[in-house]
Each structure stands twice: as structure tokens, then as C-alpha cells.
């Protein structure tokens, strides 16, 4: 039997040199993506969006309209893909699920006392159970950043395991809120903890804190995913969320994925954008490529 348990010491996770990562990002960002290659990327990016509404003032009415948009991004132009998922609070899962019936768009629910995560574990488990029972296909949990920064890595690891257990068939995305982790070393460590604890996806941010999905953070997380794959043969997905609102930024992210992880990750099964306004910019760029003229926001629905 070639079966063994690898014990991971998360205090010895590889270090990251920030300046080196920035240079890597600058180099990746210098890729020039034009013409058919650009259109391909724009459509791919559309299909990777977790169209998100996470506001205190969310209502069923607003959500239903958003769900319609998720499936009908810009019907004036045929042949466009839909987004990957709609991302909502647990109380909205049922509405979203019904609104998206008949599509293959997933419903993702944030949980574990999103966004701060400042609640006891039982509450987080209940929060997650509620979302799963209401039909959520995916769970976006937040880690306890306070415990992490205290060095209580086992707490964070156990918490992720506990949530993973109640997810059942729902795929688990683990949000680090990298803007609160301060260093790239911490981002890397959080990535390792989450992946070894069973995360299906690792995700940068809640979108409530700035900085969110910076390119440097994304590269570090992609490299962590690569190391995990080398070590275990297991794929883990990546979701940058927050702050990616332009087609250019989205394509730069896809370049990062392509050149760090390659072909297998270039699908919405393994890569997502958490974004609310990105879709329209992608659409504008697609229409610009199709028509040859620059677009106005007035021609694309805002939800």
C-alpha cells in the first residue's frame, strides 16, 4: 500500500518574497492579449464569474433580477455563456435556487458569520447547514483571522474541517480575507492550511475589506495550489474576489492561471471571479471586439 499520512507543520510553510512576487506579476501583466485570443479570454472570464450580491439591503426582488441577468447576460448578442454562479447570503439561497431553476448556474452561499466570522463554531455550523439545506451548491466560508494571527493554526484547520463536514456535496470555498493577513507569508500559510483541511477552493477576500484580490495575492495562492497539486495530485480551485472590475484585470488573472497551473484550471470548475460589476465590462469589451467601436455603459443592463 502506498498510503501514508503526511503531517504538515504549518509554521514551516514556504516563505514568500514580496518583491519577487511583484516582479512576477509585472511580467505576467505584460502579456499582450489581442484579437481572437482576447475574445476567447473575455468569454471564458464571463463564464467564471460568481455574480455577487452581499448587501444588508438585498431583497428577493433585487435578487430575482440579478438571477435573470446571470443567465441572460446580453441577449442582444447571441452565443454568450452564462456566469458560473450567483453568490448570496444564506437567507437568499432559496430565492436564488428557484430563480435559477432550469439553468446550470450554481448558487453559492457565504456562511460562517460572513464577513467577519466573529461567531462561535456552533453558529457557523448552523449557518452553513442552513445554506446547504436550502440548496446551496457551494459554500463560501471565512476563516477566523484573529485565531490565525494569534498563531492558532490548528484552530483554523479544525474549523475548516468542521465546516467541510456539514457541506455534504456542496463545494467549499475558504475565504482568507487576505487584506487582514498583512503578509504574503501569511497568505501562503493560510492557503496550505485550507487545502490540507479539505477546501475545494481557496478565495482571497470577502469584498468588504481593501485591499482584496490583488494580483500578488492571487499569484501566491496559485503557487500554493500548484505545490499542493505536486504533493498530493489533488486539484484545488482558486477564487479571487473583490476589486476585479475590469476586463483587463480579469484577463491578467487568467494569464496568471494559465502560466502557473495550466490548462486544467482554465474552467469555471477550478477558477472563479467573485465580482459584481466585472460582467458588464467584459460584455463591453466583447461588443467592442465584435463591432469595432468603443461602448457606452448605457447599452448594458445594470443590476
Amino acid at each position: 500500500m502506498n498510503k501514508y499520512i503526511e503531517l504538515i507543520d504549518f509554521s514551516k510553510t514556504p516563505t514568500v518574497d514580496q518583491v519577487g512576487v511583484e516582479e512576477r506579476v509585472a511580467r505576467l501583466n505584460s502579456r499582450s492579449i489581442k484579437k481572437e485570443s482576447k475574445v476567447y479570454a473575455l468569454k471564458m472570464a464571463l463564464n467564471m464569474i460568481d455574480l455577487t450580491t452581499l448587501e444588508g439591503k438585498d431583497t428577493e426582488g433585487k435578487l430575482k433580477q440579478l438571477c435573470y441577468k446571470a443567465a441572460h447576460l446580453h441577449d442582444a448578442y447571441p452565443g454568450l455563456p452564462s456566469v458560473a454562479a450567483v453568490c448570496v447570503y444564506p437567507t437568499m439561497v432559496k430565492t436564488a435556487k428557484e430563480a435559477l431553476k432550469g439553468t446550470n448556474i450554481k448558487v453559492a452561499s457565504v456562511s460562517t458569520a460572513f464577513p467577519a466570522g466573529q461567531a462561535p463554531r456552533e453558529v457557523k455550523i448552523l449557518d452553513t447547514k442552513y445554506a446547504v439545506e436550502n440548496g446551496a451548491d457551494e459554500i463560501d466560508m471565512v476563516i477566523s483571522r484573529g485565531e490565525f494571527l494569534k498563531g492558532n493554526y490548528n484552530f483554523v484547520f479544525d474549523e475548516i474541517c468542521a465546516i467541510k463536514e456539514v457541506c455534504g456535496n456542496a463545494r467549499l470555498k475558504v475565504i482568507f480575507e487576505t487584506g487582514e493577513l498583512s503578509t504574503l507569508d501569511n497568505v501562503r500559510r493560510a492557503s496550505d492550511i485550507a487545502m490540507y483541511a479539505g477546501a475545494d477552493f481557496i478565495k482571497t477576500s470577502t469584498g468588504k475589506i481593501s485591499p482584496a484580490a490583488t494580483p500578488t495575492v492571487t499569484v501566491v495562492m496559485l503557487e500554493a495550489i500548484r505545490d499542493f497539486y505536486y504533493a498530493t495530485g489533488k486539484m484545488v480551485g482558486m477564487k479571487p474576489a473583490g476589486g476585479i472590475s475590469t476586463a483587463k484585470a480579469a484577463i491578467q488573472n487568467l494569464v496568471m492561471v494559465r502560466e502557473t497551473l495550466g490548462e486544467a484550471w482554465l474552467t469555471n470548475e477550478w477558477f472563479r471571479f467573485g465580482a459584481s460589476s466585472l460582467a458588464n465590462d467584459l460584455l463591453m469589451q466583447i461588443m467592442k471586439e465584435a463591432t469595432g467601436v468603443y461602448q457606452s455603459k448605457d447599452y448594458f443592463s445594470i443590476d
Partner: peptide
């Protein structure tokens, strides 16, 4: 955790960069 033998990344992607 079981280790898959020689996991290989594939960089020959269907998404190509145009000249």
C-alpha cells in the same frame, strides 16, 4: 493523504496568445 504519482501540469492550453 494518498499521493498521486507524478502529477503533471499541462501548459499546452486551448487558449493561445495571438501574435
Amino acid at each position: 493523504m494518498t499521493k498521486k504519482e507524478n502529477p503533471k501540469l499541462q501548459f499546452n492550453t486551448s487558449w493561445e496568445y495571438a501574435p
